[in-house]
């Protein structure tokens, strides 16, 4: 459906390359190869839907956990990873299995921006904006506020990934690189 190449949200000119800021202390990089499906389903109420969802999207991680295939977003919400152009098809496939139940799968690729934060200064920079403990914790994520912006913070080895709403990505990038 989406025949356009994904554009950089953070480019300062149309059609630019994904934004990068490599400095010795702090390295920032915008990832444009990440697609997402936002899944809303209350698996306490509709427990029988889990099997069908996990058959398509893989195991759904528990609270504050993430895997390369799925990220926890709340008691009844997940982000499922996909290739950017495959998200819509994945959403449609999941939705068709819900059979009129209270569940919703939507392509969320365009609404989210992923920023990789790495380097020896990464932790201190993030610690200036969030009260979350930043010790390496593979597979952990935190829904938190970073410099007044709501983010999903993924612990990725010694590094971090931030998932932020598209509209706030430009501000967050400026905040991180100030």
């Amino acid at each position: 459906m989406h025949e356009l190449p994904p554009l950089s949200v953070l480019a300062r000119a149309a059609g630019g390359e994904p934004a990068r800021l490599p400095t010795p202390a702090l390295s920032l990089a915008e990832r444009r190869d990440a697609g997402f499906v936002r899944l809303s389903v209350d698996l306490k109420r509709d427990a029988d839907l889990r099997g069908g969802i996990e058959a398509v999207a893989g195991p759904l991680p528990g609270p504050n956990q993430w895997s390369e295939r799925a990220l926890w977003q709340g008691p009844a919400e997940w982000l499922l990873a996909s290739a950017p152009d495959a998200a819509q098809a994945l959403a449609a496939r999941l939705q068709s299995g819900f059979d009129g139940r209270a569940a919703l799968a939507n392509d969320a690729t365009d609404g989210l921006v992923v920023i990789e934060v790495s380097g020896p200064g990464a932790r201190d920079r993030l610690a200036g904006g969030t009260g979350v403990a930043l010790d390496p914790a593979p597979g952990r994520l935190a829904l938190t506020r970073l410099g007044d912006v709501r983010v999903t913070l993924l612990f990725d080895g010694p590094d971090f990934r931030l998932i932020v709403e598209r509209s706030l990505a430009d501000y967050l990038w400026s905040w991180l690189s100030r």
Binding site: R38, D42, A76, D107, A108, D110, G111, L112
Partner: peptide, 12 residues
């Protein structure tokens, strides 16, 4: 109620 809610503002 059997209902789910999603914010789709930034997707569109």
């Amino acid at each position: 109620m059997a209902v789910v809610i999603q914010d789709a503002t930034s997707q569109w």
